[in-house]
Design a protein around this nucleic acid. Structure first.
Length: 727
RNA sequence: GGGCGGUUAGCUCAGUUGGUAGAGCAUCUCAUUGACGUUGAGAGGGUCACAGGUUCGAAUCCUGUAUCGCCCACCA
């Protein structure tokens, strides 16, 4: 027996070495697995971590979860492929670097210029990429590094351009003047999903535009009223019926306005005065009303810096100050009828905290309700050549089960989200990311990668929303748009496990992109997982200072223990409270296994694998066989926590506490048949315990396996169910 | 405003199709040079949030209530 078993298990001395051996073996790459060409594939793409910093416990959990699934399927005889990658995360990364530069050098991005900033962000991204990848390795993740992808590398750039071009040609990507979410602080548009609603108290002002204006109007955004073109009332509202259709010319706060009274069913007669001042350029709902009634929409009174551009006394003021100025004017004129404090949800930018200013802007959009002819489709319910919308494709993919979501509640959330989906604004006014492949010269517009022939072409200065490239991920990582062997063999992928936070942001958009470009689901099963929280149930956050570095945990307890601490104890989908004492407990468990191994190795030296088992031992053998079968079902159905706990319980409280204790008596006895049978049994039971635990605790199980079966191939590629033979 | 969840032992959570409530940690008692003290044997501890209903039988299914939480949202 190896001397190392005389000391407690030492993860530090084991894990890095074992990982290197695995990596050297090439088995992380399914192409080099034994009998690779006849195996059914099982594919997972790693949700690419942002290159903004370091790995946190959420990543550690996600990695553990996916690795356990990948390892299980590899042991079940599948060509298991798990593709690593990282995400450039346009806004997040640029914002991080800009902040650093501002802090260290006191310079803004405009001081540096586009080229220099992009270079600096790229540099930063490269650094954090290296940090992150080394951390992922320490978790034991069996990723195929030969297929590593980065959202800004050449292959992915090509995929992004091709995807854009095809959708542009199909009329699904268009440029339009629309109300967008403008973040005055970050100086960019953001998507609906990057908005956080904050409840605040606001004042609801009730006022009249002028002394003889017939309808009082209520609003919280008094300053925008200098941009009004109409007042909308409900068509059935008896109070105002007689005024509908009339136009009133007023001078409001030094600004001449021409206000038409229109009737629109969107207006809630119960709210405020039942009349809505229509400001088309600064409110989505008003924009829509203006569209329906053919009102002018070009009356812009607020600029990108949230300052007033209107003439008169509000000119140049910040919106907040302008609001007060208008209120003051109304008071002076005796037009302010009421002030009431109400609670209101304010839209703020997730990234910068800036208050969103709705502004009409020329932006790029993906039209989710635009009909197109889908050239090819494998998704049940949608036939090749059908005329459909992206929304319909997204809905059908999940309804038909092409994408299965075993967690019913998330399916409901998804469908509900689709229902409320608007066109997706994909342009961002930042510099780091995929630049929009569109060129302008006068009124000419061309979509292509490089500048067209001739002089005078300028490229669109915006870059794409980071989710545009991430949503191609399941197939861009497999070499698309080339029709690669990988794409044929490994797509649709098998399994995807994102946090529920990004179900709409990412999952649904992968379904959109994969549906349009390949006519396929991006993955067969989605298991949404929960968030890792601290012991008190709070989110980990920088401001709370409650962050835990997974690497610190690994140094202290080993990766196996950390993985078990995250996987056991909570079902996939519910939040996890991270508890260090739990991790410590699983470190003890790794040591327990180590000592089981020590006992078994000592007692079973030179054991003969062909020894027939006694009746009693056969029963013990069948007991574990049944458990392994049960546990396999748990892994199969993503009940990792149950698999982990069952194996834990068997190893410690059945094998160690009872069977080994009992064996001490048996082995001390004179009965040769009983002792040889028992030795073979113990050897076999330990081997299978290692097998059942390997997906969750890969390192310690592999290490023991190496001593238990010195001539066998890696445990990592051992097959399940096992043949139960002794080497 | 719309949607979706949670509520089970002191704590963290399991409980797959309804069949006498489980684990880990914590607590208490006992054991001891035994593969392992990172140990072993045992104990206490729960009206499964509440109220109705379906059923021979409900933590599990249905209805309602309370409470905590999450997601979505263009009520000015």
């Amino acid at each position: 027996m190896d001397e190392k078993f005389l000391k407690p298990y030492d993860p530090g001395a084991t894990e890095v070495r074992v990982y290197n051996e695995w990596e050297k073996s090439g088995y992380f790459n399914p192409d080099t697995l034994p009998d690779a060409d006849v195996k059914e594939s099982f594919t997972v793409v790693l949700p690419p971590p942002n290159v903004t910093g370091v790995l946190h416990l959420g990543h550690a959990y996600e990695d553990s979860l996916q690795d356990s699934i990948i390892r299980f399927n590899r042991m079940r005889g599948k060509a298991a492929l798990w593709i690593p990658g990282t995400d450039s995360a346009a806004i997040a990364t640029q914002a991080r670097v800009e902040k650093n530069i501002q802090k260290e050098e006191g310079k803004s991005r405009h001081d540096l210029g586009r080229e220099e900033l992009v270079r600096r962000v790229g540099e930063f991204a490269k650094e954090s990429e290296e940090t992150i990848l080394s951390q992922v390795r320490r978790m034991g993740a069996s990723l195929d590094w030969s297929r590593y992808a980065y959202t800004l590398d050449d292959t992915r750039n090509k995929a992004v351009f091709t995807a854009f071009k095809r959708m542009y040609d199909a009329g699904l990507i268009y440029r339009g003047n629309r109300i967008v979410n403008w973040d005055p602080k970050g100086q960019t548009t953001i998507s609906d999903d990057e908005i956080v609603h904050e409840e605040r108290t606001a004042t609801l002002y009730t006022f009249k535009y002028s002394k003889d204006f017939p309808i009082p109007v209520a609003t919280t955004r008094l300053e925008t009223k200098v941009g009004d073109v109409a007042v909308a009332v409900h068509p059935d509202d008896a109070r105002y019926k007689e005024f509908v259709g009339k136009t009133y010319d007023v001078v409001f706060c030094d600004v001449p306005l021409s206000i038409r009274i229109v009737a629109d069913t969107e207006v809630d007669p119960e709210f405020g005065t039942g009349a809505l001042g229509v400001t088309p350029a600064h409110s989505q709902i008003d924009w829509d009303i203006a569209t329906r009634h053919d009102l002018p929409k070009d009356r812009i009174v607020i600029n990108e810096y949230a300052k007033m551009t209107a003439q008169g006394r509000v000119s140049g003021l910040k919106v907040g100050d302008a609001r007060e100025a208008v209120a003051q004017w109304l008071r002076e004129e005796g037009l302010l009828l009421a002030e009431e404090s109400i609670s209101q949800n304010v839209s703020t930018a997730e990234r910068t905290g800036g208050i969103i200013e709705p502004l009409p802007k020329l932006q790029w959009f993906v039209g989710v309700d635009t009909p197109f002819v889908i050239p090819y489709s494998e998704i049940p319910g949608i036939k090749s050549g059908d005329t459909v919308t992206l929304k319909e494709v997204m809905r059908a993919a999940v309804e038909s089960g092409a994408v299965s979501m075993p967690q019913e509640n998330f399916k409901k959330i998804y469908q509900h989200w689709i229902t409320n989906l608007h066109d997706w604004c994909i342009s961002r006014q930042i510099w780091f990311g995929h630049r929009i492949p569109v060129w302008y010269r006068g009124t000419e517009v061309v979509c292509q990668e490089e500048a067209p022939e001739g002089d005078g072409w300028t490229q669109d200065c915006d870059v794409l929303d980071t989710w545009f490239s991430s949503s191609l991920w399941t197939f861009s990582t497999l070499g698309w748009p080339e029709q690669t062997e990988d794409l044929k063999k490994f797509h649709p992928t098998s399994f995807m496990s994102p946090a529920y936070e990004i179900l709409p942001l990412w999952v649904s958009r992968m379904i959109l992109m994969s549906g349009f470009h390949l006519g396929q689901a991006p993955f067969k099963t989605v298991m949404i997982h929960g968030l890792v929280r601290d012991a008190k149930g709070r989110k980990f956050s920088k401001s709370l200072g409650n962050g835990i570095d997974p690497i610190e945990m690994i140094d202290k307890y080993g990766a196996d223990a950390l993985r078990m601490g995250l996987l056991a104890g909570a079902a996939v989908g519910s939040d996890i409270r991270f508890d260090e004492s739990k991790v410590k407990g699983y470190k003890n468990f790794a040591n327990k296994l180590w000592n089981i191994a020590r006992y078994v190795l000592t007692e079973t030296e030179g054991v003969d694998s062909t020894t027939p088992l006694t009746k009693a031992d056969t029963a013990l053998r069948s007991e574990l066989n049944a458990i392994l079968e049960d546990v396999a079902g748990d892994y199969e159905n993503y009940r990792i926590h149950l698999a982990a706990e069952k194996m834990y319980h068997y190893a410690w409280h059945r094998l160690a506490d009872e069977i080994i204790e009992d064996s001490k008596t048996v082995l001390a006895g004179e009965d040769i048949e009983a002792t040889t049978s028992r030795k073979a049994l113990l050897h076999g039971l330990l081997a299978d315990v290692l097998l059942g635990l390997h997906p969750c605790m890969p390192f310690v199980t592999e290490e023991i396996w190496g001593s238990l079966k010195p001539n066998a191939p890696f445990l990592m590629i051992s097959q399940w169910p096992p043949s139960s033979s002794v080497e």
